[in-house]
């Protein structure tokens, strides 16, 4: 089969599976059923049963990957949409995401280094707090594995949302802005949809925090990595 046809089948099949996964997620609606997780759980066994190596899947997968770049660019749109709230909350959001970024990058690196993991794995988990496409781009830039980066982002998203109320109690965070910035900068889009459950303003603040933190983390990661490793 020519590569073009293989690629085309992969793209169409992935999109259809994604649509099914999205429908399932809308019905159940917990963070564990995020469409990307359900899609992955459907696709991997299919590849295994038919003995299709990941490399063959990636003939089409690379076409989809190619769209990660413009998808990151597209994040400017929700940020622009929220520009009035951005102006109102710029100081707390910027301060919160910068502190969060420094804490997240350095604790990630130091804990993994202390546990004795290789550099490639440490680089892959360093940008875990930001939205997946940005995290993959950062991991790629500093020498990590993009697939691992995507998985760590997922763990940060789901774990953060599951434990958010305990964290807020532990750190005595009761202000709506504190909660929204916290969950947006630690658990990206999964956190943002959780914040949206509390209200539109909460959703907006955490969306801004998610995008701003993606920029902050990509700016400071290379420097901090050089300093800590």
């Amino acid at each position: 089969m020519s590569n073009f046809i293989t690629g085309l089948i992969v793209v169409v099949a992935t999109y259809m599976i994604y649509l099914i996964a999205k429908r399932i997620h809308q019905k159940i609606g917990v963070s564990f059923t995020a469409p990307v997780i359900i899609s992955t759980i459907i696709i991997i066994p299919i590849l295994m049963v038919f003995g299709i190596p990941y490399e063959t899947y990636m003939i089409g997968g690379d076409w989809i990957n190619e769209l990660l770049g413009p998808a990151v660019v597209a994040l400017a749109y929700p940020l622009y949409q929220q520009k009035d709230i951005l102006k109102r909350f710029i100081t707390p959001i910027l301060a919160g995401t910068i502190i969060g970024a420094i804490v997240g990058i350095s604790t990630g690196i130091l804990l993994a280094k202390f546990a004795g993991f290789e550099e490639e794995i440490i680089y892959s988990l360093t940008p875990k707090s930001v939205t997946t496409p940005v995290s993959m781009a950062i991991a790629d830039m500093i020498g990590g594995v993009t697939t691992l980066a995507a998985v760590f982002v997922m763990i940060a998203g789901i774990g953060g949302v599951l434990f958010s109320s305990i964290i807020f109690k532990l750190f005595r965070i009761h202000h709506y802005a504190g909660k929204s910035v916290g969950i947006g900068s630690a658990s990206h889009a999964i956190g943002t949809s959780k914040a949206l459950e509390s209200g539109l303003l909460e959703g907006s603040i955490s969306t801004i925090a998610m995008v701003v933190s993606a920029v902050v983390v990509s700016v400071i990661t290379p420097g901090l990595v050089g300093f800590l490793l």
Binding site: A101, I155, G159
Partner: peptide, 22 residues
């Protein structure tokens, strides 16, 4: 490691912005 680091991000980022808001 990822979970612990994530909790610390949420706590530190949240506390920082809360302090400024208050």
């Amino acid at each position: 490691i990822v979970l612990l680091s994530t909790f610390l991000v949420m706590g530190s980022a949240g506390l920082t912005s809360q302090r400024i808001m208050l």
